[in-house]
Design a protein around this nucleic acid. Sequence first.
RNA 1: UGGGAUGUCGUCUAAUGGUAGGACAGCGGACUCUGGAUCCGUAUGUGAGGGUUCAACUCCUUCCAUCCCAGCCA
Length: 566
Amino acid sequence: MPDKKNEKNYPSNFIRTIIENDLASGKCKKVVTRFPPEPNGYLHIGHAKSICLNFGLARDYGGVCHLRFDDTNPTKEDVEYVESIMEDVHWLGFDWQDKLFYASDYFDQLYEYAEMLIKDGKAYVCDLSQEEIRATRGTLTVPGTESPYRNRSVEENLDLFRRMKAGEFEEGSRCLRAKIDMASPNVNMRDPVIYRIRKAEHHRTGNKWVIYPMYDYTHCISDAIEGITHSLCTLEFEDHRPLYDWFLDQLPVPCHPQQIEFARLNLSYTVMSKRKLLELVQSGTVRGWDDPRMPTLAGMRRRGFTPEAIRDFVDRIGVAKADSLVDFELLQFCVREDLNKKANRVMAVLHPLKVTIENYPEDQVEEFEAINNPEDESAGIRMVPFCKYLYIEQDDFSENPPKGWHRLSPGAEVRLKHAYYITCKEVIKDESGNVTELICTYDPSSRGGWTPDARKVKGTIHWVSARHSFDAEIRLYENLFTIPNINDIEEGKDYRDYLNPNSIKVLKNCKLEPSLKEVTIGEKFQFLRQGYFSVDYDSTADNLVFNLIVTLKDSWTKQLKKMGYV
RNA sequence: UGGGAUGUCGUCUAAUGGUAGGACAGCGGACUCUGGAUCCGUAUGUGAGGGUUCAACUCCUUCCAUCCCAGCCA
């Protein structure tokens, strides 16, 4: 029975149904899944779906999940990616224990099996060039034609294949093909290539091999060797399943895993294709795989998204076979929900406006008690200093406020969070008419945020003491792209045409309350009334850098939009 | 126009012949020292047409739409 004690109870899905039936019927005794990334790029949120699925199933049904690198193409793979993938899987909260494998671990076995296929007359060495193979494969509607090398003798095939392995032939001059059916309506079955010559160094096997097995051949056999019961992959492999099954049916493998396909994750306003992500990195459009705007796990981690939020998100989106595009809003919701419970509240002014309290003594300093997290009493309190000179947010003052304005405006009174009520007496502007400073008065009886007369003050705004605050850099992020579905773009346009020019905005000289001087990389805060922020690792002792993780819900801006102000 | 798949609120996802439900987004309200959080309320959906059945998202049938496949990539 599934053990979901510590998980929220989300709806079941068709894969769970299959597994429960297999367990009930005795078709399998213990669930064994695997997460099989190719180490040719960084993991993204789409991989997180697969990771949570595979490891989650193993956890819930008392099975195990292997981590297996699908490293059959030495020209594209690298240890850098292997390392990042392991880091990301761990960070997400999953552990493969001693079940770490590489498809390259099976190269010897795979080779043996290939010889068996040859001996059984089910594979042959083909001398056609890549172009010729393509030309003879036929089209989607026209059958292919058989290779002139298709009926070589077993002896000749064996000899040639062994010489391929020995490095006697040039890359591309020959390959090993399965002998299936050139007229199959499924092009994957038209004598697929199963070994090619690649004189490239492999990140694990070095120069031991000059022939490398193809994915279709490798994956099913690797699954079988590891005793995988349910081999989950994305929809585009559905057409490959007959081939997956074909190899396993021909060979004396220990078991025959079941391949099950599900729809990959698409997220609005971003891209999930490894090719595009790689291009964004290599073109310098973003600052690297871990740029906080990237949908990579490294990027999201740096941005400040938590593994808990990502796991919750994956649980909420479910698993099915229909193509889908999930609202980015849902991910943001999950992040807010998690951080609301965890992040301490602090005050930071992103766009400072100077405020002078004219009736406050020049040299006086007070400290106010501030609750760190109203959602978590154990987070405790801190002291926040106050003086005659303050900064507030430019957006919190309006000379001609719209209807429903709760914040500061000429003559209006607001509460400074945790401190005093202040009233705006005078607006100071520069020559071009920009507001540069406000002269206010405070009500000494409102100390701590209350008055004896209990009069209502609609607005509460955040602030910092000009004398005690310090400057920091804050990086604001928006969606990487301007349209929700990057796979659905105008004719003749490229996805790069839809890059959001405002995806990053760097703010210098933001004013932070002094308690923020002591922070650690990756630490997360709620900047009161603004959003959640995470300390970036670009931070130095004299220049702290914060990343916007996600803004707070903002019903005021929403209202302004409805009123037509924005 | 070959083969494989998929169509349920705006979005994602349940319901496997028996009251179409949940979440996010939306809308309305309450409350609030964050216009945050929280709470309450509310609208919107079975791609279309036939058929079987007391009863159809579910079974049959015809159609329509969308996605994937012609790498010696995975």
